[in-house]
């Protein structure tokens, strides 16, 4: 795991706590150092503090996203909708607010890294209109053209697809995709749904595949 945090004391304490949870932790104190370490060590997960000197957390996130689908968790000192949505829009898969518990972070990351559960109904190939989904290969195409999704977006689409036609509440999706076993944040689902739509829908404002069901949640149209 790569943690990017400019406060040295926090870095040390978080490293100690995460190592207790069994992680190998690389530390970077700036965005620039983080990019270098990322390219050298190819971590499984990146933890980014939004407030960084130099390149800020959002920018770093976007930079990493350009080349990688690695799970990214944002850490913010503010719980403002603005910061959180901006972080998710920049490509983060999840977020935590300071102070967070290493146990919780660890659980969150394991959920992000977890592979899609094997399931008896699972098919290796699914087709919805022009959309083709191959969970085994981690590939999605629309009209034969490959669409690049992050791991989380792909998981979200797969969960919806496996029970296509059924409605998923936000909590249900939070549980399945992010592993939240408590009251999660609907913003996580909403922002990811929005990003997923911009990638797979021809007209994201009038979605053909991922539709909103009033009062209940989301559904993938068959």
């Amino acid at each position: 795991m790569l943690t990017v945090e400019d406060d040295e004391r926090i870095r040390s304490a978080v490293k100690l706590a995460l190592e207790d949870e069994g992680w190998t932790v690389d530390e970077a104190e700036s965005g620039e150092a983080a990019i270098e370490l990322f390219n050298r060590n190819a971590p499984d997960v990146v933890l980014i503090d939004i407030m960084l000197p130099g390149i800020d957390g959002f920018e770093l996130c976007r930079t990493l996203r350009r080349t990688s689908a690695v799970p990214i968790v944002m850490v913010t000192a503010r719980n403002d909708t603005h910061d959180i949505v901006a972080g998710l829009e920049a490509g983060a898969d999840d977020y935590l607010t300071k102070p967070f518990a290493a146990k919780e972070l660890s659980a969150r990351i394991r959920a992000l890294l977890r592979r899609i559960r094997p399931s008896t109904t699972r098919r290796s190939h699914m087709v919805f209109g022009e959309l083709e989904l191959s969970p085994e290969e981690g590939k999605v195409t629309r009209s034969g053209e490959e669409i690049h999704l992050t791991k989380t977006e792909f998981r979200l689409l797969c969960e919806l697809a496996e029970n296509a036609g059924k409605v998923f509440s936000r909590e249900n999706l939070l549980d399945r995709v992010w592993g939240y076993d408590y009251f999660g944040d609907g913003r996580l689902v909403d922002v990811h749904i929005r990003r997923l739509r911009t990638k797979i829908e021809a007209d994201p404002a009038n979605p053909r595949y991922v539709v909103t069901v009033r009062g209940l949640g989301y559904r993938l149209e068959t």
């Binding site: 406060d7 004391r9 926090i10 040390s12 304490a13 978080v14 100690l16 706590a17 207790d20 000192a77 503010r78 300071k98 102070p99 967070f100 518990a101 290493a102 146990k103």
Partner: peptide, 20 residues
């Protein structure tokens, strides 16, 4: 409160290490 969060982060992570 924002400034308080940083030392709290250190405190909280350290307490976690100790609790283990």
């Amino acid at each position: 409160s924002h400034e308080l969060r940083s030392p709290l982060m250190t405190l909280s992570a350290s307490v976690e290490v100790m609790e283990a």
